[in-house]
């Protein structure tokens, strides 16, 4: 996982967040770089969702 993807995972481990919150926290990152990192988080198959649509790290998910 690239460093930004790891940061995103850490932020989601802290608490569930809307995708827009993650975007807002990284506005200094180029959009394409952000999407590449998000793609890595997605591909890791560790994400869950809460009732309000926030992303979270699933319980027991292994972050490589």
């Amino acid at each position: 996982m690239n460093p930004l993807a790891r940061v995103l995972v850490a932020e989601l481990s802290e608490r569930p967040r809307h995708f827009g919150e993650l975007v807002e926290a990284h506005m200094e990152t180029a959009w394409r770089d952000f999407l590449l990192a998000w793609g890595e988080v997605r591909a890791a198959d560790i994400l869950g969702r809460d009732d309000d649509g926030r992303y979270l790290i699933r319980a027991g998910a292994v972050v490589s």
Binding site: H18, F19, G20, L35, W38
Partner: peptide, 17 residues
């Protein structure tokens, strides 16, 4: 590579672009 296409962020609570 879809990230080469300028897919926008639209609404506050969208699950992605």
């Amino acid at each position: 590579d879809l990230t080469r296409v300028p897919i926008p962020m639209m609404h506050v609570k969208d699950g992605g672009p």
